[in-house]
Amino acid sequence: MERKNSLLPCNPNASKEVIAVLNYLNDMAGRGVITGQHTQTREQKELYYIEQITGKLPALCGFELLSYSPNISYDSCDEECKKEIRENEGTLETAMTFAKKYGGLITFTWHWFSPLYNKNKGFYTVNSDFDASKVLVEGSKERIAFYSDMDVIASYLKPFRDAKIPILWRPFHESEGNWFWWSAKGMKVASKLYQLMYEHYVTVHKLDNLIWVWNCPKIEGYVGDAYVDIISRDLYPPAHEHTDRAREYRELIQITPTKKLCALAEIGTIPSVKELSSSRIPWSYYMTWSNEFGGSDQFTSKEELCLAYHDSYAITLDKLPKLYECQTII
């Protein structure tokens, strides 16, 4: 099952910190799995839960950027949407603190409220009339708004670049489905949007601290090796079903003959770390989703969580080597 990455970042100008992370992930492939947990609020209740149960913290922490979307239609938001936005505010500061205090790995998820024509939770297709295919048309309103939103988010990412903090960046996630506006017109359109973002962020904004994570397990939607450092997929298995996810790994690697690092970018029920230590399926990392998935025993029992975090194969925060040196921004 060993698939060693070529270690060449897709961005030829990638920072030394990006290279260090990719080298580490490659070295550990099949020798250990990085534990990860998504948090979408500043409270980070999931981290407190994990530490209470296991006495440890994950090596990777995920953060949500939905509240930073420039085009939220607040007047149409219901109370649930407003609460989600409000609780997500300030998570970039929390991410910066996690990186500077612990030197842990960070990854960002962006439930992007569509650049135009949205209501309520406007990242969902059902709540947006935004036609992603029109972004591909030069001079269209959709294209202009798309780039405007990207520029705003780039301004939030630049302090991380300046502080020498690498980010596992996973835009346009779950592009195999049609539930988000970016893939409502198909996987190929979503992959084109990803390419536009890559080119804009690399050539215009010089965001050389980004590690580019593609998040779609379908070969027909693959964006191409030139834009990807890590291939990944999201999984939500039944509660308390813990395996090494070997079948899902074999499916994922079919999208490219190139040996790419692989990750479980979102998962509801954690994989079996014990099985992974035996099968050596080289998942680089997994990131448990938030709320009931990572902050309760509804999907993963306390016993299973404790066994996973204390397995010698699990890379928790205390086992993670120093991969980057944060710089103070003046």
Results as ranks from 00 to 15, higher is better:
3 R>S: 05
7 L>Y: 12
15 S>H: 08
16 K>D: 15
17 E>N: 14
25 L>Q: 09
27 D>Q: 13
28 M>D: 09
34 I>Q: 09
35 T>F: 11
39 T>F: 00
45 K>I: 11
49 Y>H: 13
50 I>L: 12
65 L>M: 15
70 P>F: 03
72 I>N: 05
73 S>Y: 10
81 C>L: 01
81 C>Y: 11
83 K>G: 08
84 E>D: 14
85 I>P: 04
88 N>G: 15
90 G>H: 11
91 T>Q: 01
93 E>I: 11
93 E>H: 12
95 A>N: 04
113 F>S: 01
114 S>I: 02
115 P>W: 03
117 Y>C: 11
119 K>P: 04
120 N>V: 00
121 K>H: 12
122 G>S: 08
125 T>K: 14
132 A>G: 14
144 I>H: 13
148 S>I: 03
157 L>Q: 04
159 P>R: 14
164 K>W: 02
166 P>H: 05
169 W>M: 03
170 R>C: 01
174 E>M: 05
176 E>L: 09
181 W>I: 01
189 V>F: 13
194 Y>E: 07
194 Y>L: 01
196 L>A: 08
199 E>L: 13
202 V>K: 14
205 H>L: 04
205 H>F: 01
207 L>E: 01
207 L>F: 03
208 D>A: 04
209 N>L: 02
210 L>W: 06
216 C>W: 09
217 P>S: 12
220 E>M: 07
232 S>A: 15
235 L>Y: 09
237 P>N: 10
243 T>P: 06
245 R>V: 06
251 E>C: 09
252 L>M: 07
254 Q>D: 15
258 T>F: 09
260 K>W: 10
261 L>K: 10
262 C>D: 12
269 T>E: 03
271 P>Y: 09
284 S>Y: 06
286 Y>D: 06
289 W>I: 10
289 W>N: 10
297 D>I: 06
297 D>V: 05
298 Q>F: 10
305 L>D: 04
309 Y>G: 05
312 S>I: 06
312 S>W: 11
324 Y>D: 08
329 I>G: 01
